[in-house]
Every structure is written in structure tokens, then in C-alpha cells.
């Protein structure tokens, strides 16, 4: 089993945040991938699939999978920006659903607002065609565990 330290080191060396996603079963299940945006900032993409629909009448994406994308984006930002060997563990997430998630891809990225030794606060946004019109926003707290450390 690859350790998170090894994943982070490879991802940074090759400048490919996708290494932080590959091998995460839920990311493959939902269709979440990671790359770098034009300014070299990690960004996640939820690839549209009919299986992601939560309201077939509209149709609209399920809020829960948009939540999964936002939480993934926050974790990838933390892994990318922390020293290798730090593993973020989600304490909580607070989601605001702003607009209907239409049946197309969703992008998500954000910023680490505060990174302490033990805990970090991250804010993330999800959008579809227009970054200025986010479909959801979230903030979350993450415990920063050192790999191999319990509790």
C-alpha cells in the first residue's frame, strides 16, 4: 500500500495532483479527478454521469456528491500544501447549496484559510461553466495527522 507521504512526494515531483486521487475508491466511483488550473493551483473535476443525478425531474446533480467533490477538493488542497506525511482527517463540513447543479461537469477549488499544527480551515467553491456563479460553497475543519500516528 502506497503511503500518503509517497503519494504527495510523487504528485509534487511530477506536478500532478491526480496522484492524490488515484487509488481513492470513492473518487473513481463518483468520477472525481484532479489537475492544476492555469495558475498552477490544484483543482478537482466531477465528471458528469447520469448516476450522479439526485433530482430526475429538473434534472439536477445530487447535493451529496457535490459535497463529496468539495470535501475531496479541500483534502487535495491540504495534501498539496502541507509537508509530506501530513494526512488531513475531516472534522466537519458546512455546505451552502447556491444553484442547481446542472447535468454537466463540476469544477472545485479553494484556499486553505488557516493551517495550524493540528488543525486547518479550508474554504472551497464548486462551479460549472462560470466561476463567478458557484453552485455550492463549503468550509471545513481538518485534523492534521502525521502518518503512522494514531488517534
Amino acid at each position: 500500500m502506497t503511503t500518503w507521504r509517497e503519494r504527495v512526494e510523487v504528485a509534487r515531483r511530477e506536478n500532478r495532483p491526480q496522484h492524490l486521487v488515484t487509488g481513492v475508491p470513492y473518487a473513481a466511483f463518483a468520477g472525481i479527478a484532479a489537475d492544476l488550473d492555469d495558475s498552477g493551483h490544484p483543482r478537482c473535476r466531477l465528471r458528469y454521469a447520469d448516476a450522479l443525478i439526485g433530482n430526475p425531474l429538473i434534472p439536477a446533480l445530487h447535493g451529496g456528491v457535490i459535497g463529496g467533490l468539495l470535501e475531496s477538493a479541500a483534502i487535495i488542497l491540504l495534501l498539496w500544501e502541507s509537508e509530506p506525511g501530513v494526512v488531513p482527517v475531516t472534522v466537519n463540513m458546512s455546505f451552502d447549496f447556491l444553484r442547481t447543479g446542472r447535468p454537466v461537469d463540476v469544477l472545485a477549488t479553494g484556499r486553505v484559510y488557516k493551517q495550524g499544527r493540528r488543525v486547518a480551515n479550508v474554504r472551497v467553491e464548486a462551479w460549472q461553466d462560470d466561476r463567478e456563479r458557484p453552485i455550492a460553497a463549503a468550509h471545513g475543519h481538518f485534523l492534521l495527522k502525521r502518518e503512522g500516528q494514531d488517534g
Binding site: M1, V24, P25, Y26, G63, G64, G67, G68
Partner: peptide, 23 residues
Amino acid sequence: DDLVGDPGTGVLHGGVLTTVVDT
């Protein structure tokens, strides 16, 4: 196993719990 968030521990991804709770 395809809903796991951390393959090292086998713990479900937060997105799964969020979806369950939202639904």
C-alpha cells in the same frame, strides 16, 4: 469497497455520509 475514502483504513468517504444524510 468502492465507497471508501482512504484505502489504508477502509473508512467510507465523507461524500457518502453527506449523501446519505442529505437524502
